[in-house]
Amino acid sequence: PFSPRTIVTNLGTSLIVKPDDGGSSVGVFPLAEVTGGELREAIDKAFNFTNRVLIEPLLTKMDEVECGVISHQGGYLSSPPGLVINPLAEEKFLTYNQKYLSSNQAYIEVPAPIGEEKQQEISNLAIMVAQALSVGGYARVDFFLEEGGRVWFNEINTLPGLTASSHFPLLIEAIAYPWERLIPHLIKEALEAASHRSSLNLYGEE
């Protein structure tokens, strides 16, 4: 295992500690100018939510953008990126409460006002991520966009919410997939994938 000193030497003193398989900011701990004791404590807390913990550099001067991706005719379609808006601008990190429970909930603006060229770049990256991971059905792909224009892949949510406050339906509606078209499409894609899988020789039978 790596020591806190080794982690800081390699990643810097501004870090974020989080479960590698979680979501909704649960078990996530941003640390600015971290000390060894704080890092150990954050790692211990994160292990209450998962069996594996990610430790990454903490980005602060950036915007969060998201794309909705759906499987389509053997490939993928991506929405334009949406910009996550934090009504409490002084808050650098969106907690679970602010995402879902606060009266000042974060929301998404689609498309993100970042110019068509950058929108297309991020949409293409979302498709590349989906292809690399062989995503089935649908997913939401999240990125960070730094002030200088550099794009960082943050994470993929392979089962994003479909509730009234979820971002995915708003994203995918931007490419002409409203509810009444999206749900039948996802069902059709799932049935076709199941049919293909059932035709495979998974057990080595002659």
Rank of each mutant, 00 (worst) to 15 (best):
G68P: 04
G36E: 15
E66S: 07
P81F: 12
S134E: 09
R52H: 14
V26N: 01
L11T: 06
I43Q: 01
L39M: 03
H72A: 05
E64I: 11
C67Y: 06
K45F: 11
L133D: 00
V141G: 10
E205Y: 09
N86Y: 10
I43M: 09
E180H: 15
G115I: 12
A46I: 04
A130E: 05
G27R: 03
E91N: 12
L31Q: 09
A193P: 00
L83C: 02
F29H: 12
S134C: 08
A190H: 09
V141W: 14
P111E: 04
P87R: 04
A164V: 08
F143K: 03
I122V: 11
D142P: 07
S102E: 06
G148C: 08
A42F: 13
T158Y: 09
P81N: 06
V65E: 02
E33H: 13
I108P: 04
L125T: 01
E205V: 02
T13N: 12
Y107E: 00
Q98G: 05
V69I: 14
E173N: 13
G82M: 08
Y107I: 05
E90L: 11
D21P: 01
S102N: 10
A164H: 14
E189K: 10
S102D: 13
G27C: 10
L171R: 03
V151I: 15
N10Q: 15
Y203F: 12
V110W: 10
V110D: 08
S14R: 07
G149S: 08
A193N: 07
G74Y: 11
Y100Q: 02
L202G: 07
P19N: 02
K18Q: 06
L191F: 15
S198T: 13
T163E: 13
R40T: 10
L159P: 02
A139D: 03
L170R: 15
E146P: 01
Y107F: 15
E206D: 06
Y96I: 11
G204N: 08
F93S: 05
S198E: 14
V110K: 10
L133Y: 11
I183H: 09
A194S: 14
I122L: 08
E56C: 10
